[in-house]
Amino acid sequence: MRKDERRRQQRPFEERDVRLLVAIGHQVGVAVQNARLWQELKEKERARSELLEKLISAQEEERQRIARELHDDMAQGLTALLMGLARLEHPTTGVSPEMVGTIDTVKQFASQALDDTRRMILDLRPAVLDDLGLVSAVRLYAQSHLEPLGVAFTLEAERMHDRLAPHLEVALFRILQEAINNCARHARAEHVRVRLEHVDGEVRGTVEDDGVGFDVWATLKGKREKAALGLLGMRERAALIGGSLDIESEPGRGTRLRLRLPLEKQVP
């Protein structure tokens, strides 16, 4: 046996062996190349996610800052203005009756401006999200955006008493905000139902409407003139925090969005 081995080792390469080795070498080369490309791709994907995360958190900070300024400067200034106008109106200031009408109109301007400011704050970054949490913020957002359109809205929340990590609350809120906006802008629904629950170690969110629905596949695959940035953005944001988003819809059948976020895997 040892003899055999030695003889085999000493046998010179034949033409056939060389061809085989060259072929194997090619295969190995391709495999290595593939592995390297795969590695690069993964590297790029990771870099992309990281960049996206940075962009998102920079954007959130900026939004929070602007919302705070609107609240602290704009809204308070307008409040003081309203109070001052109400004082002018008072009979003891000797104001003429025709002035009272003008003052009242100006008061309404200030009121309107304050309402607009409130709406801007709500879209940018509602204080209620930071103060009271996701459920309260979603309730306020949906009420203010759906009820004026005459869309009935219900919110069910189960075992959502405990607050989540701030970055998760913000991400979930942004996803639900987009879903609610879509209901308001596209669905022509009579009723929108939002459900949030904490079950089996995950947060699950559902946004359902009984509106016109749409072709999900065609919309996501960009068969239409305009990319579905809202829907894709929601997916992306869910993925970034380790969650997933499922979109079910058909023309004429309403739309249902299902969001899942496992909590155990979250780094605190």
Partner: peptide, 17 residues
């Protein structure tokens, strides 16, 4: 906490009998 609103409220309340 906003001084401007405290002033506004004062303006309003001061004329209430």
């Amino acid at each position: 906490d906003h001084a401007i609103v405290r002033q506004g409220i004062r303006l309003l309340l001061d004329v209430q009998p």
